[in-house]
Design a protein around this nucleic acid. Structure first.
Lengths: 345, 345
DNA sequence: CTGAAAGCGCTTACAG
DNA sequence: CTGAAAGCGCTTACAG
């Protein structure tokens, strides 16, 4: 690996001068600048980010902490974050906590959780990243960010009640409301919902959106219309069984595509066809939704945009600390209309 | 952030002594060791990996370079790598090259490609990782690893002809042979294949496996039996159209699940049912395969195992450099039999 | 058993 | 315009 010192020797200048040139300081003669730059080019020199971080005030690098890389939402968000920072000449460093892999779905009750987060935070502080993005695996209130940190931090795909921290999420409530309205506009009045787990924040928000749309259209909703699943296909299947057997529902709104796929499984068994005998809507727009037969009408979550917005908020905070005001930002989802919702009119 | 110096002062010892204790050197009295350890605990001190890397010979950290995080194979492999290293008390650092996102599928012809790899390699060398794993986005011959590097490196999901570098891949050939044999055992004799892109190594290997199985069973294969797609559902659909229209084929082997889903699209349109009117087999075992109707019989790629094996090979090389012999390792795939292959007997 | 000193690759006042 | 020196947080001979 070629170092500052080596290229300084090759050019017969001090390493200070080389460093100044590399950092775009204006106090260097054009002549030596040109000479040094050419040597840098021909040797293929690249600065050592970590050494730089040990000393410098600004490193042009950001840290990304992620609950678990294997969550379906993770790669899209990360790609958004990284693309934004790449465009702005920032380097991003990723720390994967592997919470779901290690502890299943109940990890945030686990004792090791806050420790792991703290450790990741410390490491980023050690190399003096200019900012940090915490990418959650699902919406929740994050409360383990140390208050005394001076490094700007934004939370992506979750939120916090701690002051001074921005977050960006997508608008579950509006999305569920829009989807419900779509159903209603197609003539559906008796709509069942297969929600997510009962205490989940996505579940609560989507339920709120569902009820809002129903109410706006003077449609009543009973507690019996709502069943709680656990996000997987099996629970979609089971809930469809208890919910749909001999019922009057003309549509069922599933709070994710996997549970909708489970409903398809049930209907397939009963020789019922989605969109004809009963309409079904999903949420997430996962790959599978396009391949279900008929293709599933669902909600698209703009993951890349969530990532890019998070990066944008962080960069603004880094560059304009004085004007900084924390905000809880919501990006809007789109409805993808495919063939699983039939028109009753 | 609390540093070595601070805890040294708190204990009235030198930072050398603290460092020795932290690194498990045996030349420290039990008494001061106990005292220092308790202070370390109560202050929540954590070593600065980057500063350590600047100076130390061994850092207990490894670097992972990945072509593109958004490839379907990436997260499984990475999770395997990280789980293995976590168990062995190694820290892993991830560098995402974003090649597909940046340059589409033709990126390895791109001028920036080797530069980016070199830069990632340099950065890892700079922080003195003990080893590096290069995770490719698809099988190919990687030839841009500098020969003179002293850092052990293994290639995951691809291979190289450069001497002294181990690689781990999965056995495309055997998997395709097994799947073809499964088809034949169910009584299929006229089998079409929708392969991947023509120059792709996965395509070549799977074709070889297919032909081998056919030959072993005295079944002939014509060039017309094989069509080349480009891995997406649309190309599966288009090829099904030209291949299956009025043909005698009783089964079609698609070289990935997405193309198989495209074949389903075609059959659905023609009111033909997979596994009954015509059998179809896939490859990859992506999420979608389980939700197709009927569920798709396919090949499972053990991604996590590929990751773990890569990590194991690397760790062996790090710990026993003298006994090291590079190897080209292949992990075996499994056949997932579902309902898309009918029995003709 | 303990610690002073040099050094990893860089940046940053500061002096000239 | 240029460079000597101190320092970031650590490890590692080496001397005592």
């Amino acid at each position: 690996m070629v170092t500052l010192k080596e290229i300084a020797e090759k050019c017969s200048v001090s390493i200070t001068t080389v460093s100044n040139i590399l950092n775009g300081k204006s106090n260097v003669s054009e002549k030596t600048k040109a000479r040094v730059l050419s040597v840098i080019k021909e040797t293929g020199y690249r600065p050592n980010y970590m050494a730089r971080g040990l000393r410098a005030a600004k490193t042009n690098s950001v840290g990304i902490i992620i609950d678990d890389l294997t969550e379906f939402s993770s790669t899209g968000i990360i790609d958004g974050i990284m693309s934004y920072f790449e465009e702005h000449k920032y380097k991003s460093i990723l720390e994967n906590l592997r919470f779901y892999s290690k502890w299943g779905t109940k990890w945030y009750h686990n004792k090791g959780y806050e420790d792991s987060v703290q450790q990741a935070l410390d490491e980023f502080e050690a190399i003096k990243v200019d900012g940090i993005i915490y990418v959650a695996g699902h919406a929740r209130c994050i409360s383990c960010i140390p208050e005394n940190s001076s490094t700007p931090l934004v939370i992506s795909y979750a939120f916090t009640e701690q002051p001074g921290i921005s977050s960006v999420e997508f608008d579950d409530m509006k999305a569920a409301c829009d989807m419900t309205t779509t159903l209603i506009k197609s003539g559906h009045k008796k709509i069942a919902v297969i929600a997510g787990t009962k205490t989940n924040i996505h579940t609560a928000r989507r339920l709120e959106g569902f009820k809002k749309a129903m109410q706006e259209n003077n449609l009543s909703v009973q507690e019996a219309d709502i069943k709680y699943g656990n996000w997987d296909a099996e629970s979609g299947y089971e809930n469809a069984k208890t919910l749909l057997e001999g019922s009057e529902y003309t549509a069922v709104f599933c709070f994710n595509d996997l549970m909708a796929a489970g409903v398809y499984d049930y209907l397939y068994e009963k020789k019922l066809v989605p969109g004809k005998d009963i309409s079904v809507a999903g949420f997430d727009n996962r790959t599978v939704s396009r391949f279900l037969k008929p293709a599933l009408t669902t909600v698209e979550i703009p993951l890349v945009e969530i990532g890019r917005k998070s990066a944008e908020l962080l960069l603004n905070q880094i560059n304009n600390p004085d004007e900084f005001k924390p905000q809880q930002y919501f990006v809007q989802c789109g409805i993808i209309e495919r063939d699983s919702v039939g028109c009753l009119k």
